[in-house]
Design a binder for these strands. Sequence first.
DNA 1: GTCGATGATTAGCCTTGACTAACGACGGCG
DNA 2: CGCCGTCGTTAGTCAAGGCTAATCATCGAC
Lengths: 227, 227
Amino acid sequence: MSLSLSRSRQDYLKALLALGGQSRVVGTSELALKLDVAPPSVTNMLRRLAKDRLVTLAPGAGAKLSSAGQREALRVVRRHRLLETFLVERLGLDWSEAHEEAEVMEHAVSERVLDALDRLMDHPSEDPHGHPIPDASGRLERRALHPAAALHAGEVAVVREIRDQDARRMARWKAAGLVPGAAVRMRSVDADDDVFELEVAGRALVSGSEGLEGVLVERRRDARTKG
Amino acid sequence: MSLSLSRSRQDYLKALLALGGQSRVVGTSELALKLDVAPPSVTNMLRRLAKDRLVTLAPGAGAKLSSAGQREALRVVRRHRLLETFLVERLGLDWSEAHEEAEVMEHAVSERVLDALDRLMDHPSEDPHGHPIPDASGRLERRALHPAAALHAGEVAVVREIRDQDARRMARWKAAGLVPGAAVRMRSVDADDDVFELEVAGRALVSGSEGLEGVLVERRRDARTKG
DNA sequence: GTCGATGATTAGCCTTGACTAACGACGGCG
DNA sequence: CGCCGTCGTTAGTCAAGGCTAATCATCGAC
C-alpha cells in the first residue's frame, strides 16, 4: 500500500510539509532554497510529484501537499524523529550529529526496523529536540507553540522545540539548561531596547528577540515556576 | 580519506570481494548474475571502477579488486555485518530479515554511527551467521572453513557460517540447532549413496551432500563431542 | 503607464547506472 | 576443419535528477 518513493521525492515532500503543510502553497524558490537545489529542478520535480497526485500544483506559484503527499511526508518525519531519538538516547550522539545522520538513514530503514526501534524505546512521543513524533498511522500531536520572545513578563512556559542554525548558540543554550522540556519564566521584557530576560533553571539568560526566535515554547496555564 | 562511493559502486566492490577477493579475476557474467544486472552494465561499471583504481581490469575476462578496492569492500562488509548483528541481537529481527535490511542500511550509516553501534554491542567479532566482522581498520579474521560434507565419519567441528538461499531449509536447520557456533559431529558418511548423518545437539540430521553445501564448519583438533 | 525586480518556467544539457540488440572471439565437438 | 555455444564488449537508449542560460509574468514604484 505504501508507495515506494525515491530519496529525492521523500525530501521534497518533507520540505513541503515543513514549509507549509497541506495548508499553504509553497513557492518554487522557497523550496529550492530549503532543499539547496536550483529553482528549475523544483519546477521539474513538482510536476512529477503532481503526476503521482502527491502535490497539487499552483501554476506560476508553486505547489502544496495533497492528502496523500502529506501522509507520505509524515511517514518520513516519523522515521526521521524516531531515528534521531534512537541516535541520541541509545547511541549517545550529539543533537546536531544525530540530525545529519537521521537525514540519511531515514531513507534506508524499513517499517519493520522502525517498529522495532519504536518498541525498543518504548514508543517515545517526542524527539530530542522536543518535536512530536507522528504515530504509526501518521497522526501528529498538535501544539500551540510560540517564540519565547512572545512571552509576557512573568509568564511561565515549557520549552518545546529548539530551532536554530547556529551550532555555537545551541551549545550555549544546552549548557544553560535551555533544552526541550525545560521550564522557563520570562523575567522581564524591554520592548523598546529589545532585551529579554529569561529564567532557566533559576538562572537568567539575557537576549535580544532575534536570539529567541528559534526557541519555541508552550504556554502554561498556571504561573507557578518550577526549580 | 575514505572515498565517497555511490551505492552501486559499493555493491559491485562487495560482490567482487565475495566472489574472489583480491586473489581471483571475476568474470563479467558471474558478477552480473550475483548483482542481478545485465552483463553490459557490469562491463561499464568495471571500467569506471578501474578509472578510480578500485579494480584491475582483465580485458576480455572481467576484473579483480585492487588493494584500494578491497579496502573499500571490507568497509562495506563491516558495515553490513555490524548492522546485521545489531538488527538480530538488539532489535530481534530474524536472520533473513536482518540481511535484507542491512543490505540497504549499509549504505546509509556513517562511521560515527557504526562506531557507536560497535561500542553498544561491545565489539562483536562475528555476525549472527557466524561471519567474521572486519575490525575498524578493515582487517578480517581468516578462517579455514570447509563444507560440512567434507567431514570424515566421527570428526567433530564447529559451525561457522550458514550460506544458503533456501529460507525454509535455513529455518529447519535453525530449529534443529544447526546455527553458527554449534558443535557438530559427523556420525556416518555414505559416499556411494551420498547420505550424510550429522549430529547436532545430540540429534541426527540426515542429508545429501548438496544440502550440506552451505554449511561451513571449522575443524576441531580434539575429537570430543559436546552435549 | 512604463520600468525593473522578483520569481516561475522553458529549453537544452549532464551524469549515473541500467537496458537491449548486435557483434566478435574462443574452445570443444562432431 | 568448421560450427556452435558461451562470454565479453560495443553501440545506442532510457529514466531520474540535477544544472545553466534565457524567457516570461506580475506587481509595485515612480
